[in-house]
Design a protein around this nucleic acid. Sequence first.
DNA 1: CAGCAGGGGGCGC
DNA 2: CGCCCCCTGCTGA
Length: 510
Amino acid sequence: MEDGLLSLKWNNHKSTFFHILSEVRGKHTYTDATLACEGKFFPVHKLVMSTCSDYFAEIFEKTPCKNPVVVLKDIKKSDLEALLDYMYIGEVDVRQSELAGLIKAAECLRIKGLAVPDEDPTKAQKKGPSSVPERREDSPPAKRKRRDSGGDRGRIPSPTISRGSSQSSSHPPSASSVPSQAPSQLSSVPESHVPSQSMPPPPSVSQETRHVDSGRGRQDSHLQQSQSQHTSQISSLRPSADTSSLRSPPSGGPESSHPSITSPRSSDQSILPVQMIKVEVDDADNSGAKDSHGDREDGSEMDGDEEETSNDFSEYQSHGGEIEKEEHDQMDSYGADQIPGPSGLQGAPPVLSWGEEGEAGFPHNLFGGDDPAAQQALCDMPESRLACSSQQQVWPNLHSSESHARSGQSQQTFSRSSESQMLPPSYPRVVESSRLQGYSRGQEIAVVEHFKRLFQCPYCEQKMTSKGSLVRHIRSHTGERPYKCNYCTYAALQKSDLDRHTRNRHRDQI
DNA sequence: CAGCAGGGGGCGC
DNA sequence: CGCCCCCTGCTGA
């Protein structure tokens, strides 16, 4: 600097960014991803999500989609909203009674500072937002560390966890290997259990752990640091919450607290192949969670009331709640075999990913992939998106996708067209298009990608299963009606339609 | 009844 | 293998 090097410092840089971030969030400007939770859409920014969660970082990293929709299952909308506040604002007020649930959700999503040690980026370069892959590894390890330190002892060794950790680091995110979704999640979200092992213990746990660690012999300074930070964060999160409350969830100690935690099944599968990502998060109290869901379901309406920024699907999803449950059921019902990857976990993993075939390609996100318009729509308020989707493109998609799923996909279990139809339009659509293998109904799944090659319509977000279909579809946009009736002014987009028309209307004249 | 999309079959490269 | 055509089925008005 002294050599003529000037340091230009923007004093208000942080505050400016913070302010802009708030604005951007409020206006949904530049949103490039959407979180779907309990039927609501939460337009978010990948940058923010990735910054605050390694989990999201992984998802986005592995998801080429421009506007991926990540469905968060088993996470309460209220919790998600709180977490979003936490991520965007850096703090959030929560009721003590809600803290446990919130922490669980945070763990499932690996929210830094809440569930994952929040290291100072400047200290740990790895964690730079951009270096997702690394991060991915980092974060899980961090959890592990914590866990290991505190939780291992006494806890049932969860293969998953250990595996995940080792693997995550060892194995590349290659899609083929079923990239990891969130290792932690997987483990963490056993269907009916608490986030478990791989997941970082709830804050309370972490605290305990921390203490223990320090007591025992400290582990990495990192760990401690992170933990300490973590703790602090928590406190900030809810100052009033006393440690006891925090601990209460895990009460027994990290491990003990989550008896179910050890889901043997959890395994790396959590790693997502990338194509579709389904995030299922079960609350620790499964029953509780489910109940809550149930409540919610009833209250899908409730969503509408509460949500602020979220998009409201309530209209579409009168069955939202049910759907979710159904998903669970389905998941369970589906043999693990059917569902590649995590799904195999059956119930356990919060995150499900399918990826097998799909890897090849689909880059487009559900909503619009490449279509700028579509993207805009996405970027816009959720409502806009809905509107966009409702433009008939969505529905058709739904339909088509559904059938597609049924037919193309091994129809594993997809026989329930009717049911799927019941699902909220946008929801199902998303899911289906992504081609949930095992998911027939689940529709809540976040589909990030398609497993089958699809042809994106340049005029809308719709994707067709064949080029021919696309050409035909495009006619609907261009107004081209090549098949004209010889007896009247009718013109059809498809010859079969003209034939049908002629048959029906001009039988006599034929 | 019309619009629309998926799938299958036939054909040509 | 890709394209085209046709049939089929679903959905909404």
